[in-house]
Write a protein that binds this DNA or RNA. Sequence first.
DNA 1: AGATCAGGAGTTCAGAGAGG
DNA 2: CCTCTCTGAACTCCTGATCT
Length: 333
Amino acid sequence: MPGELTEITEVATALGMLCPDLASAVARAPAELHNVPGTIWNRIVDAHAQSKYAASFASAFDNGRAFRSAVDGLRGRRPRLVEWKGPHRPPGDDVIPADLRIDHVYLVSCKYLSRVLLNPGPTRLFERLLVGDERSPENWFARTAPDEFQAFYVAAATAVGRPDLPADVGLLTRPQQRQLKEALGARSLPAELRAPWQALCAEVSRRSAATWDAAMASPRDRLRLLWRMLRITTATYFVLGTDATAHLRLRVDSAWDWMQAYELRSLEVAPRPAGQPEVAWQAVVRPRASLFDIEVSGHVEIRWSHGRFFGFPEAKVYLDTPHVDVPGFHVLR
DNA sequence: AGATCAGGAGTTCAGAGAGG
DNA sequence: CCTCTCTGAACTCCTGATCT
C-alpha cells in the first residue's frame, strides 16, 4: 500500500520535531500532534512494530529533528502545535505543497525529492501555463499531430492484424484501446511501427514547443510558469525529503523572496529528439547580487501513462538541474 | 545511471436516472 | 423541467520496474 509509506514519512517527521526518540513517540502520541485520526495512528504504531519500515521511520524522524534545530527552522524550540494535513488535496492550482504545519506558521512538505516536478495534462501545461485546474477532453496527440497519429494508428492496427478496428483513431472505444495496447505488447515496437512512431514524436514535440512558446506572450507569463513548475508560491515553505542517497532539506523562497533576489532573463523551450515526444525547457536567472547567470533546465515528456493508445497522454515535467542549484531553493541551515 | 515504460490510488468530471 | 445523487470514466500524481 503506497499510501502507508507516505503516512509514515509525514507523521514520523512530525514526531521528530516533538519527541526525543522514536520509541517514546510511538508509545504515546504527543498532545501537540493534531489531525492524525486514531485509525491512522494505530496503523503507524503497527508499522513501527514491524521492521519493514524501520529505515523510513528513522530517516523521517531525523528530518523532523533537523528542522527543529535548524537556524532557518525552529532554532531548537519545541513546537506547540504540529498539524498533519492528511490525505486530502485542496483544490486549486497554486497550492503550497505542505503536509505539516507547525505553530500555524511553518509549512513543511515531506515529499520524496523527485526529479519529476509535476505531470499535468498537456493542454493545461502548454496552453494554459498551469493556470487553473480545468481538464481538457482532447487527446494531445490528435490535437498536435492528427495525421501522424492516424498514420501510426493505421500501422499499428495492421501490424496486430485488427482490420475490424475503426478507421479513425478517434473512434476507438475504451475496450478497443485496451485490446490494441495489449496486442502491441509492452516495450519495443514492431520494426514497421518505428518510423511512424518517430514521425508522430517529432511532430508532437515540435507543435508542443511552438504552442508553449506562443502561450508565454510576456516575460511575466514566463516567470509565472517557472514559478509554477518549481512550486514557488506566495509563502515560504520547507521540503524535508530524501534523495536516493541522502537527506535533502530545503527552504523554498516565496515569490516575494524570489523577486528580491533574482531576475528571470529568459525561459526558452525547444523540441528535443527522444524515444517519445519531448520538449526541453531552460531558464536563465540572474541573481541581483551577482553578475553571473544561473541556468535551470528540465524537460517535458508527452506520454501515454497507461500504455499505447490507452487514454490520453499526459505531460511529465522533469527538473534536470540538481535541486540545490535551483534559484530559490536553499539548503536548510 | 538515465531513459523509457508501467500501473496503483485518489480526486474530479460528466452523464444517467431518480425524485421533486 | 430542474436539481440531486450515484457511478463509471477520466485525469493527475506518484512511484516502481525494466531496458540500454
